[in-house]
């Protein structure tokens, strides 16, 4: 039997990934390169916020805290998201490459999580995988447009890729808690996803004339609460209302 605390923590990690990424997508509101993209980014944002809510509700049901307490009343070191989702939103190339790398990872991750012995996580994964398939089709198409479009778009996409590549190793790192939930058949062994992920991403980068960056610079720490400087600023904004007016209903 998996310890309930472990499941709560595991759900919280996944919920934080979705919440922090969803919050970054909200920053594109009325700022996309054209109106159809405003709609598409909002669509993805809604998927991530919906997923964040399900996962935080589930974690909260075990921890005795509401989704909003978890989202708005934890400080940065208590957040457990992957670093890649908290990076400043950047230009459209940065956002696109980030989304693509994440989509390929989530595709493998949620596919595997649908087999979780934890029924709630399996059900959330079953819903998520449908959304992720759609996101991935879209981001692949954008990678083609940027990589094969103009010299400028290719240059911007390459610069984004070089920057973001330092954060992809974290997709595949497992700590002790994760090792326990994997052993119980609840969690996904992310290290097992890496080879397929690298194959798929490598193939696409090749196709769209972008070059694979080297692995010499790698940063991690999100899962243990050691974040970039950016997360605190994001939380300052996101949590403003609950911090300025504690304990009220909205």
């Amino acid at each position: 039997m998996t310890n309930h605390g472990d499941i709560a923590e595991y759900a919280l990690r996944l919920g934080d990934d979705a919440l922090v990424h969803g919050q970054r997508l909200c920053e594109w509101c009325a700022d996309a390169p054209f109106l159809e993209e405003d709609i598409a980014i909002a669509n993805a944002g809604l998927d991530y916020l919906g997923r964040a809510r399900m996962l935080l509700q589930y974690a909260g049901s075990i921890l005795g805290r509401s989704e909003d307490e978890l989202a708005f009343l934890r400080d940065a070191p208590e957040f457990r998201n992957l670093l890649i989702v908290e990076l400043p939103r950047g230009d459209f190339a940065f956002a696109t490459v980030c989304q693509y790398l994440l989509d390929e990872y989530e595709l493998l991750f949620f596919e595997a999580l649908t087999n979780s012995k934890d029924e709630t996580l399996a059900a959330i994964a079953a819903k998520a995988i449908k959304e992720v398939r759609y996101h991935q089709r879209r981001s692949v198409e954008w990678m083609r447009r940027l990589g094969l479009g103009t010299e400028e778009s290719n240059r911007r996409a390459q610069a984004a890729l070089d920057e973001l590549w330092g954060y992809v190793a974290e997709f595949f790192d497992a700590d002790e808690l994760e090792t326990r939930v994997i052993a119980d058949g609840v969690g996904v062994d992310r290290s097992a996803l890496e080879v397929v992920w690298r194959d798929r991403v490598g193939d696409l980068l090749d196709e769209v004339e972008l070059s694979l960056p080297g692995d010499e610079w790698q940063v991690s720490g999100g899962r243990s609460g050691v974040h970039t400087e950016h997360l605190g600023h994001m939380l300052g904004e996101m949590q403003f209302m609950q911090r300025a007016y504690p304990g009220l209903e909205w």
Binding site: P33, L148, G149, S153
Partner: peptide, 15 residues
């Protein structure tokens, strides 16, 4: 937003 998006629209058209 429109001006910053110009290179994106150009890339899309070129592709």
């Amino acid at each position: 937003a429109h001006e910053e998006g110009a290179w994106v629209r150009e890339a899309m058209a070129a592709y």
